[in-house]
Design a protein around this nucleic acid. Structure first.
Lengths: 157, 157
DNA sequence: CAGATTACGTCAATATGACTGACCCATCTG
DNA sequence: CAGATGGGTCAGTCATATTGACGTAATCTG
């Protein structure tokens, strides 16, 4: 494939604007709670993968333990998440949303759904597939499993 | 279009991982210079749109004047950008890369090109179009012109 | 069973990139 | 000339991240 600079720049810019504008869509809801984006990312993945462990969440977010620690402490203090020790390995801490956490995550998710829905609809299903394919190619090999495993547990139902 | 939660979450996650991993690709090059991502974003758009004004760059980056100010001052101090007063409106400041700035931006751009190229190649051209279409739909109406105008001047050549 | 490893938490110190709100000057436009 | 606009700057603050070291409990392994 012959890749001219223009095609790369176009992809770069659309990714930048698409991603930043999408995240801005949830900022208002977060600000109302006095929370930041870091809290949302944690809420999001805990919603996506109930009972996920701290170390798994660390791999997903690719930040340090210390950074995540403050976020989780804060979320727990506000009663948005709850933890319990792992059943097979009691060193682990399994993370779950509380009822309040589920409600907040759902509210924030609605903003994402609205934006993504309209983008998908405007582009048409055949283009959504392309959108996914290219993005998959952007995720480095070593992280790909991490992404594709998401929602496994939920999809099993 | 019937939009199940799973499709929205999948798009969300791929965007998150694709975007963050792509930006990480340039972090090493930036760190070598002691620069951050904010500097790269400014360099990128100045490379893309030579002689762009400060206010135009502000609209693109959607940050405050104060935040941008520090970045531009730093870039100028390092001899990566140069400015000159506007010709039609002398209040304006036109931003350009110096030779050193062009070299650095090109080096950083190469990392992006490598990643995006391989993702485009893995997905195939028909999917690249879909990728663009969906992302365009994610950019709010009021910002769309901002994005589509990028590179106009360069494409005219 | 002893020792290594893992999962998680926590300390202190630091950096970056952003924010608000006020205010200034120079220049352009009606 | 008055007001709007382009740009710069002040001081203070916040959110999110970093590194590196250390502690404790639980699990795994020779």
């Amino acid at each position: 494939m012959f890749l001219r600079e223009e095609e790369v720049r176009r992809g770069m810019e659309l990714l930048y604007f698409g991603y930043t504008r999408l995240t801005k869509a949830i900022d208002e809801g977060l600000a109302r709670q006095g929370l930041g984006r870091a809290h949302h990312r944690a809420l999001y993945f805990i919603a996506r993968e109930p009972d996920l462990t701290v170390s798994h969440l660390l791999r997903l977010l690719a930040i340090t333990k210390q950074s995540l620690g403050r976020v989780l402490t804060e979320l727990q203090k506000r009663g948005l998440i709850e933890t319990r020790p792992g059943t097979v390995d009691r060193r682990q801490k399994l993370l779950r949303l509380t009822e309040a956490g589920r409600a907040l995550e759902a509210e924030l998710f609605d903003a994402l759904r609205a934006r993504l829905s309209s983008a998908y609809a405007a582009a048409g299903q055949e283009n959504v597939t392309g959108f996914w394919r290219v993005l998959e190619g952007l995720v480095p090999e070593e992280d790909r499993e991490l992404v594709s495993d998401l929602g496994e547990r939920l999809r099993e139902r």
